[in-house]
């Protein structure tokens, strides 16, 4: 059963008089309890894709289906975790975690009760009344993830969640997230630049083309779970990694029309062009 299905998603921005296509018909899907990654070159439009999915940007064409039916209010579908943890400095950790529930109209007290039992699992027990600045980078990211999952939306949308962490912390977090996912089996859509992170965490990896983005290919990751970090050195993993990199490289040097266009757009994405690509890419 497909929880989420995205078909033919198109989006372009207007730069001066010229339309700048960013998404050129993106198709993807995730089944219940499936962990799916999107990987693509910098500035390929991944963040725009997320913004469209979350409902922050209107889409030009295409549809998003939930459980086989056309989804009405898109915001109800996804719980969004941005790259920056964006914990509010004026809220204590627990009140940051309950933010989404409060927005939904739950009282602060009930929201706290709902969240409290999850704190140990997320390694935040004893820190619920601390302020965010008192936490380490890894803890902040765990709090941000908990803030995302307690919203109990059908799909988690993770936008490079570990991109701002140092590499040691990132590895720890990747292993932690894998274990946690084993336990909760969320349906998750992860955007990342990190090929190994994508393969390590996912059941399926979508490789996006350069802008305007479409899905170039997708690969299953038939590596059994639970996965240890050592799995990254095994032949099946390395083979998938090789394939993903080959698909990405094809975009970087290939003679395809898209690639020439992508180069031409570079100045736009480096300046204050449209959308979020400039920032994330």
């Amino acid at each position: 059963m497909r929880v989420i299905e995205v078909r033919g998603l198109r989006k372009s921005f207007r730069v001066g008089a010229e339309p700048l296509p960013v998404l050129a018909g993106v198709d993807l899907a995730a089944g219940r309890g499936e962990f799916v990654s999107l990987i693509g070159p910098s500035g390929c439009g991944k963040s725009t894709l997320f913004n469209v999915l979350v409902g922050l940007e209107p889409l030009d064409a295409g549809e998003v289906r939930l459980n086989g039916e056309a989804a009405p209010g898109k915001r109800e579908l996804f719980a969004y975790m941005p790259q920056q943890d964006l914990l509010f400095p004026w809220r204590r950790v627990i009140d940051n975690i309950t933010l989404g529930l409060e927005v939904q109209g739950m009282s602060r007290r009930r929201a706290r009760e709902r969240v409290r039992p999850l704190l140990p699992t997320f390694g935040l027990e004893g820190f619920e009344h601390a302020y965010p600045f008192e936490l380490s980078g890894g803890m902040r990211q765990r709090a941000a993830l908990l803030r995302t999952v307690v919203q109990e939306r059908p799909v988690l949308l993770l936008d490079e969640p570990f991109g701002a962490l140092d590499s040691l912390t990132r590895t720890t977090m990747q292993r932690w997230l894998e274990q946690l996912w084993e336990r909760f089996r969320w349906t998750a859509l992860l955007i990342t630049h990190d090929v190994r992170e994508a393969i390590f965490l996912s059941d399926r990896v979508y490789v996006l083309s350069p802008r305007p983005a479409h899905v170039r290919a997708w690969l299953e990751v038939p590596i059994p779970r639970p996965r240890a970090l050592a799995v990254m050195a095994t032949p099946p993993f390395l083979e998938i990694e090789r394939q993903v990199r080959a698909l990405l490289d094809q975009g970087a040097v290939g003679p395809r029309e898209n690639d020439r266009d992508a180069d031409e757009w570079e100045p736009v994405s480096a300046g204050d062009g449209p959308g979020e690509d400039a920032r994330h890419g």
Partner: peptide
């Protein structure tokens, strides 16, 4: 105000007043 923080709240379904 951080633009990302506003986006995050909007993704949660918050209106202008929230």
């Amino acid at each position: 105000t951080e633009a990302g923080a506003v986006q995050l709240l909007r993704s949660m379904g918050a209106g202008s007043w929230q």
